[in-house]
């Protein structure tokens, strides 16, 4: 069979895999981002007695291999009585992994804001939440764009691990087609193209966001 015929035969499952990968990427990013921001804000500026357990949790998660966490959610949780669909298990596992790493990225950006900003805001009588919303975050967000977008790209690529817990994502579809047809070049290359498209879009989004934020805040070099 020609590459064209092979492709015609398998493209429905490949496209379905691409769609699953897209969905997995979008959902894990949508869950991980606010979670990571909350963790970072609490650890950097919040109550010590909430921050310490969070720090332990984040470290426990980020020090483990992602694949092991996925295996735990998919294979070990059922033993505790929580049986999950493969896609749900992958979403949970990848989201908490991503949130743990991402919270460290955000923490760095929040810590980079001069402590004088908090003192000035406090001296003016501004509340803690108001200070975070109006003073700290607008200064931290521009700093966070490069590490955040890099983290998002890493998370998109890490969704391929879901193929190991029976999720029919792009990697799983490509490897399944490969093992049936013994034509790795075509299918692995196609999968690669799919990941390039998604992460390439994120890389473009980063350039756009950096340019836009530079204009919005006019943060002149000091």
């Amino acid at each position: 069979m020609s590459y064209y015929d092979l492709f015609i035969q398998y493209y429905p499952s490949l496209l379905k895999g691409l769609w699953t990968t897209l969905l997995l990427s979008a959902v894990t990013l949508l869950i991980a981002t606010p979670l990571a921001l909350a963790i970072a804000l609490i650890r950097e500026t919040g109550n010590r007695w909430v921050a310490i357990p969070l720090a332990i949790l984040v470290n426990a998660i980020r020090l483990l291999p992602a694949l092991l966490v996925l295996f735990f959610v998919f294979y070990a949780m059922p033993q505790l009585g929580y049986r999950l669909q493969p896609l749900t298990a992958a979403m949970i596992g990848l989201s908490i992994m991503g949130a743990a790493y991402m919270s460290e990225d955000f923490r760095g950006c929040i810590a980079a804001i001069d402590s004088g900003q908090y003192k000035a805001a406090k001296a003016l009588g501004l509340s803690h939440l108001h200070t975070l919303r109006r003073i700290i975050l607008p200064q931290a967000v521009p700093l966070a764009i490069p590490p955040y977008m890099t983290r998002a790209i890493i998370m998109v690529k890490a969704t391929s691990l879901a193929s190991m817990v029976a999720v029919a994502d792009l990697t799983a579809a490509a490897s399944r087609a490969t093992s049936i047809t013994y034509e790795p070049f075509l299918f692995i290359a196609f999968a690669g193209l799919g990941y390039l498209l998604i992460s390439g879009f994120l890389a473009l989004l980063q350039s756009w966001a950096e340019a836009k934020i530079a204009r919005a805040y006019r943060l002149a070099p000091r």
Partner: peptide, 16 residues
């Protein structure tokens, strides 16, 4: 605290 104004050595204006 809002009744007490404070001026710092390093100004601490909000740069954004």
């Amino acid at each position: 605290r809002a009744d007490i104004g404070m001026v710092f050595q390093h100004f601490n204006l909000f740069p954004h």
